[in-house]
């Protein structure tokens, strides 16, 4: 019982910290190359509209513009950090032989979100707080497919309140005194050394601001995502 209480306090403190900070730096990337070839892998982006009742609907044209905006924004944000991001043709990256590599990369990102960025209780003691995950030999497959030394994987979920939900939020606040959650921007970016398979850098995003539908705010998201990317 006492444990539960302590955890609750801890969770609240860390949770609050998370909301403010939105992301934490993982581990430094030692840059040995003069000009590392970094491939921006086809991104996994989902934009949705949240109805008054909390029903989430994916919106296709938002996703199309978000994909374009964020690709441009990430490239610009990388340039600002003295790096060149190369977009990758989705077709070879989605080849049947790379399916398991892709699924592994998704699962590793999930593990990093849970065990590295998530609830403090889910930390793995054997990692000693450092980012030690790998894609193993699949990295070499990816390297051959995209001809790069590093691969940047980005997964983002962006949701926006519909007009109805915004009105309901006000009514709910006035009548019941209960706030309604609005749009969320959650995601993760990981940089993988394709020669070793090691995940060398990762950053998580979890906040209630941001907008990928417009180039300006998308650049803000991109800068925030790549903030700690070693130069």
């Amino acid at each position: 019982m006492r444990c539960r209480l302590a955890c609750l306090v801890l969770w609240a403190v860390i949770g609050a910290g998370c909301a403010q900070d939105t992301a934490r730096l993982a581990e430094g990337l030692r840059r040995t190359d003069a000009a590392p070839r970094i491939a921006l892998m086809p991104m996994d982006i989902l934009l949705s509209r949240v109805s008054a009742g909390g029903f989430s609907q994916p919106v296709a044209d938002w996703m199309a513009s978000a994909d374009y905006n964020l690709t441009q924004a990430l490239r610009q944000a990388a340039v600002e950090r003295g790096l060149v991001l190369r977009s990758v043709d989705p077709a070879p990256a989605a080849a049947p032989g790379l399916r398991q590599a892709q699924l592994l990369q998704d699962a590793v990102q999930d593990a990093i979100l849970l065990h590295h960025f998530g609830d403090a209780r889910d930390r793995l003691p054997s990692k000693f707080g450092s980012l030690r995950w790998s894609l193993g030999p699949t990295a070499r497959q990816l390297r051959d497919a995209v001809s790069a030394d590093y691969a940047l994987f980005v997964r983002l979920r962006d949701s926006y309140s519909s007009a109805g939900r915004r009105v309901l939020a006000v009514v709910s606040m006035v009548l019941v005194g209960m706030p309604l959650s609005g749009g969320q921007q959650v995601g993760i970016a990981t940089l993988v050394d394709l020669r070793t398979g090691q995940v060398v850098w990762a950053r998580a995003l979890d906040r209630s601001t941001g907008d990928l539908r417009d180039p300006g705010p998308a650049l803000e998201t991109a800068r925030l995502l790549l903030k700690d990317l070693p130069q």
Binding site: S51, A52, G53, G54, L168, V171, S172, V174, L175, V176
Partner: peptide
């Protein structure tokens, strides 16, 4: 999907109004 969304919207509105 349309029915589910409309259904949840109505439920949410009525819920908030009823509670309020």
């Amino acid at each position: 999907a349309w029915r589910q969304r409309v259904g949840s919207d109505i439920r949410a509105w009525l819920g908030v109004l009823a509670q309020g």
